[in-house]
């Protein structure tokens, strides 16, 4: 069955969700990944949304944002952002998803600006809840386009902290959460060395090569001793993704 790159990334994102996870869902592709995981392999996972929603079943209709009416219908709890952030800060959230404009070798993300505060070259939208998720969730997954200008040796501004300068940086800075556990890109899946906390190439998407990944990464990227192949989405995963994104807004670029 043919599939798009976005469908592959949604499936890879969903597979990071475990059945006992409390997931801080966020926006864009993770909205779909959560729906997919619930339908396929993580029926008991709980999803929380920072506008103030907690739900444990897929929404009845396609979601473009967490604030869409179908995300409230069938929810277990609708409340304030403060309550959702309380769960996050108090260590109750096991997994979060975030995206970024720039990521570096220790998984730090910049979504604020490129340039200087007084002389902004490119103004990016900002943190949203991303920085809170990166600081406070027990683990988090980064979803990114794999391009050299986005995979930089060192981000100029840390919006959402990964492992900082590596090793025990998070502890030294008083951060509670466990840091990033995976980076799902348009070409590969990367993970982090348990000691140095540096990003490592872990799995290649079908058709991608190690050379291509290295060329599109702005530092000398290390590779795992055995590099996996990312499993393509299964037929049943694709059926669900297409059910939750019927017009292909997120996964088939049909409307942009």
């Amino acid at each position: 069955m043919d599939y798009t790159l976005q469908e592959l990334m949604v499936a890879a994102g969903a597979r990071e969700i475990r059945d006992d996870d409390v997931v801080f869902v966020g926006m864009r592709l993770p909205l779909l990944a959560f729906q997919l995981a619930k339908a396929i392999h993580a029926p008991h996972a709980t999803g929380i949304f920072e506008n103030g929603i907690l739900r444990d079943k897929p929404a009845g209709d396609a979601l473009y944002t967490m604030g869409d009416a179908p995300n409230t219908e069938g929810a277990i709890w609708t409340t304030s952002m403060m309550d959702i952030m309380a769960l996050l800060q108090n260590g109750r959230v096991s997994l979060g998803f975030i995206g970024g404009a720039e990521v570096d070798r220790f998984g730090n993300l910049n979504t604020t600006y490129i340039g200087e505060r007084e002389k902004v070259k490119i103004r990016l939208p900002g943190s949203g809840g991303g920085s809170d998720i990166a600081s406070l969730s027990r683990r988090f997954v980064i979803i990114m386009n794999h391009e050299k200008r986005r995979f930089v040796e060192r981000v100029s501004y840390i919006t959402s902290p990964g492992f900082g300068e590596g090793r025990s940086w998070r502890d030294r800075n008083g951060l509670r959460g466990g840091g990033p556990c995976a980076v799902i890109t348009t070409k590969a899946i990367l993970r982090f060395d348990s000691e140095t906390k540096e990003m490592i190439l872990d799995s290649l998407h079908p058709g991608a090569t190690v050379e291509e990944i290295l060329e599109n990464t702005g530092w000398n990227l290390r590779c795992a001793s055995k590099i996996d192949k990312t499993e393509p989405p299964t037929r049943s995963e694709l059926q669900k993704i297409r059910k939750y994104d019927p017009l292909g807004f997120w996964t088939r670029n049909t409307m942009r």
Binding site: Q89, G130, D132
Partner: peptide
Amino acid sequence: TNFAISLALHAGALGIPFIPTKSLLG
């Protein structure tokens, strides 16, 4: 951050000058 905005307004609502958090660090 989203959390920081809620905390800032919550501090305003409580009539206190600030609120500590474990977010924002680093």
